[in-house]
Amino acid sequence: MLEARLEQAELLKKVVDAIKDLVQDCNFDCNDSGVALQAMDNSHVALVSMMLKSEAFSPFRCDRNIALGINLSSLTKVLRCAQNNDILTVKAEDAPDVVNLMFESSDSDRLSEYDIKLMDIDQEHLGIPETEYAATVTMPSPEFQRICRDLSALSESVSIECTKEGVKFACNGDIGSGAVTLRSHSDVENPDQNIKIDLTEPVALTFSLKYLSNFCKASGLAKSVNICLSNEVPLLVEYGLAANSYLRFYLAPKIGD
């Protein structure tokens, strides 16, 4: 059986909020190392990969592999019934029909329990090759979100160009063009504002802003975001979570102009 207790329901609420507009029905694959999810959007352009390691829970117990097929809109409805600070316990039997979610208020005696009916989801699983990216940009997640939002007003696509000079987000649309260039930046007083660019070779790729803006819904989960690029391969946008856990988004490039 599965029994996983999260100190704060907020984590799962935010994760589900960040991915529910991209993917609808997902298997939460549970085993003794934690809870993993991999799902592609309907058009096979973007992929979500989440890993909540067993250390993120206390306690965590999962005796055998269990796939919990859950509709994210149903899960959202139930998670709305939890306060951010509630303790969340997820329980399921070994061959379950339902998953049980229990919310406990940390400062009162309220205890809420919900069951969600599970679905049989036949999901395509993709092998993601280990990639040494040519460029990795680490920047404040709100800054990345703002750039995506601002450029979305002008164009459907953004070109991301990394050179030793910095990283340039540029777009070209009907009303005109725009570009934001960031250089490496280190702020000792305010390390959350740091911008780090690790580059082994220059990279230039074009991506859909609609998808990038969608990924940015995860901005509330981590203060910084890693944007990993190599020419001719999908982009990786990674939000690190506590206990070595993560929420990653992969996006196929567009054919440049």
Binding site: S43, Y250, A252, P253
Partner: peptide, 14 residues
């Protein structure tokens, strides 16, 4: 969407 590649050309189904 115009000019959009998919992930299937990059990642293999397992």
């Amino acid at each position: 969407e115009k000019n959009q590649k998919t992930l299937l050309g990059f990642f293999q189904k397992t």
